[in-house]
Simulated scan of single mutants.
Amino acid sequence: MTHASELGEFLRLRRAALQPADVGVVGYGIRRVPGLRREEIAMLAGVSTTYYTRLEQGQSVNASESVIQSIARALNLTADERIHLFDLARARSAPRRRPPTKPDRARPGTLTLINSLPNTPAVIIGRRSEVLGWNALGHRLVAGHLDVDSPAHPETRPNTTRMMFMDDHTRELYGRWDEEAERAVSSLRVLAAKDPDDIEMTALVGELCLKSPEFGRLWARHPVTACVSGAKYFQHPDVGDFELAFEVLSPPDEPMHRVLLFTPEPGSAAERAVQLLAREVELAEDAEQWPRGRAGLRSDR
């Protein structure tokens, strides 16, 4: 699908979700399809019906900022949806040519930062929702069944969206899987619109649409949310059920990377669960170091 057709699809879906009463339009007659008519959106946006129709049909690109602003207001878009609409509207009529991309990597400083937070689960997520790094507690929280070093190697690097739909452990981990699945697709939609020429992103979406009907249905709905904060409900196999607040930060020099930080409420079940996981991490690290220490003692004798 071209970026122009992505724009048209987004406009059609948001138009279909509106009713005349939502925007103060008097509805007359029987509507054969749900939502507002094209001419009604065009009227509210102050553009011609012909021009708006061309946008929906993917026949017009590079619409002016003022027109996009007017259409966003007419469609009652949220703040995240407005940003997404502008990303789609900035599309070119033909993709750029560019050299093959190198595997994405987390900034060393960001890795140092999250590893300096031993009591805060943290995960670094890349431009295609792949895991670029995590601290030991973040690994134990979200993917303890995977190799802790897997993010360091592009060929084995986990992808959070792929895991959400195709990994049994991840599906069982979240107490509200449907909510997390929609959040994952919404976030991926935002990322995909930022770089329409990303071949690897296109391949990821194609793979998930083919292998997961659930992903395909959600992707077709075109949900858009930046997902920068909120709560996640865990059913962790080691420490039980709890809710963790999360915040997402982006390095200023790499805005397509996101640092996901989990913070429990003081005195809550989540805090006790995180403390138990932290203790498990300490015990595992001690167990790894103990044989080396014993060997060192024997070699000194």
Rank of each mutant, 00 (worst) to 15 (best):
Y174E: 02
L146D: 06
L146E: 12
T161E: 05
L117D: 01
L173P: 02
E182S: 10
E200W: 00
I114E: 01
T112Q: 11
N119L: 11
R171F: 08
D198F: 04
V123E: 08
L113M: 10
D195G: 02
A184R: 09
H139P: 05
V142Q: 14
A152E: 14
R140Q: 15
L146C: 10
P196N: 05
S150L: 11
F165H: 03
T161R: 02
R127K: 10
R140E: 15
E180D: 11
D198H: 02
T161K: 07
L113V: 09
S129A: 09
E172M: 13
E179N: 12
P121V: 05
G109I: 09
I124D: 06
V148A: 15
E155Y: 06
S186Y: 04
T101Q: 15
R162S: 11
L188E: 00
L111D: 03
N159I: 01
H139A: 07
L113R: 04
E180W: 13
T156R: 10
N159D: 02
D147R: 14
S116D: 06
L191F: 06
L146W: 05
L141S: 05
L132E: 03
L146M: 11
P103N: 06
D167L: 06
R176L: 15
E130W: 04
P118I: 00
D149V: 12
N135Q: 02
P118A: 02
T101V: 15
N159P: 01
D167Q: 05
S150N: 13
A192Q: 04
T161A: 15
V190G: 04
F165K: 05
A152C: 12
E180L: 13
E130S: 12
T170M: 12
G138H: 01
I125H: 00
E179P: 09
A136Y: 09
L141N: 03
H153I: 15
M166R: 12
K194D: 10
D149G: 13
L111N: 00
R107L: 11
N135D: 04
K102T: 14
F165P: 01
